[in-house]
Computed example of a mutant assay.
Amino acid sequence: MEKILSKGYGASGSLIGGKTLELMQFERNEPKPDEVLIEVLYCGVCHSDLHQVNNDWKNTIYPCVPGHEIIGKISSTGAAVSNFKVGDIVGVGCMIDSCKTCAACNDGEEQFCEGPHGQTMTYNGYWKPDPEFNTFGGYSNNIVAQEKFVMRIPESLDIKSAAPILCAGVTTYSPLKHFGVKPGHQVGVIGIGGLGHMAIKIAKAMGASVTAITTKEEKRNAALELGADQVIISENKDEMETAAAAFDFLLATIPYPFDVNDYIPLLRRRGAIVTVGLLGPYKAPTNNMEVAKLSTTVGGSLIGGTVETQEVLDFCAAHGISPDVQLIDIAEINDAFEKVKDEEVRFRYVIDMSTLKGE
């Protein structure tokens, strides 16, 4: 198969200990008949990029070129592609392919692909890692994706800020939709960062009354500006006790281990708390006595499939929702990683990938 020589910023090993992302060259396969080649225009910086680059999940394949919130322009199409043409502005999220034949894939929930290797991630290869197979993400000049995993970008969305919808947007939209959030519901969003700020906007657009729950007093005004109806500082015992049994649904977007038992008492009878920011164990085991008292649910949610990804793009366009982003040059990516780690970004960095051309 013919190869495409690509360039981007990636890691040859964990950044812990002083390494940085650096400019590198790598090869991609030419598009198959059902694939497209995309020139990357903008790429969001997700906290998952830091986790993967640093091998926090113990599955990273190096070299690792991150980036799974991609807005780009189609450069070429395979002979069997029918839904897109050269020049179309499109998006790619966390996946670029799957088996496409299992029950999950047929339902448009490719994030649960039951094929032999699971879904093909936008970077780091298959969901079930194979050291012999790697994929490279959007911190690069181009990317190849299977047609089904390419999203149409509504014209009303600003392509400079829309990229985070492809991960942060669908990751929060999917559980809000699945658990039936609707007008009249009381929703709490725990953690007001890249995911949390999108969750506030989406839940408000669904008609819910939304409370932002954060450890940081300095985020109170920012959360209100995003549309939250009220704010709880989780380290304030009185505020937490006042909110006992107040919520139908809690969405936890915290990207590091935390104690879910701190939040279970906030749920109403048969309410649910769903974690989307943490891929790993809670800091402490779930107290099932507290869960049973009001028949509440503690669950998790994994990104979203192609159907929901297109849905959330259209939903955001229809409701005038845009991520709050800071546009950066690719040369600023290592500083951006440090600021994401230290929670100093408001609320999502997006890389202008045109700045890679001069590298």
Rank of each mutant, 00 (worst) to 15 (best):
V276Q: 06
V276E: 05
V276S: 09
G277I: 07
G277L: 06
G277E: 03
G277A: 11
G277M: 07
G277C: 11
L278H: 08
L278E: 08
L278I: 10
L279D: 12
L279T: 12
L279F: 14
G280E: 11
G280I: 13
G280V: 13
G280P: 13
G280N: 10
P281D: 13
P281V: 11
P281T: 08
P281A: 14
P281H: 11
P281E: 14
Y282A: 04
Y282K: 06
Y282G: 02
Y282E: 06
Y282P: 03
K283S: 15
K283W: 09
K283E: 15
K283Q: 15
K283L: 15
K283C: 06
K283T: 09
A284N: 15
A284F: 08
A284W: 00
A284L: 13
A284Q: 15
A284Y: 08
P285H: 11
P285Q: 11
P285M: 10
P285Y: 10
P285I: 12
T286N: 04
T286A: 15
N287Q: 09
N287V: 08
N287D: 15
N287M: 09
N287G: 06
N288K: 05
N288G: 00
N288T: 14
N288S: 06
M289R: 13
M289T: 13
M289P: 00
M289L: 15
M289I: 14
M289A: 13
M289N: 10
E290G: 01
E290I: 08
E290C: 01
E290P: 00
E290S: 13
E290Y: 02
V291C: 10
V291I: 14
A292F: 14
A292G: 08
A292L: 14
A292I: 11
K293R: 13
K293V: 11
K293A: 09
K293S: 04
K293Y: 08
K293F: 11
L294N: 10
L294I: 02
L294Y: 09
L294S: 07
L294H: 07
L294C: 01
S295I: 03
S295P: 00
T296D: 02
T296S: 14
T296E: 03
T297M: 14
T297G: 01
T297S: 11
T297I: 14
V298M: 07
V298A: 06
V298W: 05
G299Y: 08
G299C: 05
G299D: 12
G299W: 07
G299Q: 07
G299H: 04
G299R: 07
G300T: 05
G300F: 03
G300Y: 02
S301W: 04
S301K: 03
S301Q: 02
L302G: 00
L302T: 10
L302I: 12
L302C: 01
L302D: 00
L302K: 06
I303G: 00
I303R: 00
I303L: 05
I303C: 02
I303Y: 03
I303Q: 01
G304K: 03
G304F: 02
G304Q: 03
G304M: 04
G304D: 02
G304N: 02
G305A: 03
G305H: 04
G305M: 06
G305W: 01
T306I: 13
T306P: 00
T306D: 00
T306R: 09
T306L: 00
T306F: 03
T306A: 01
V307E: 03
V307S: 01
V307N: 08
V307R: 07
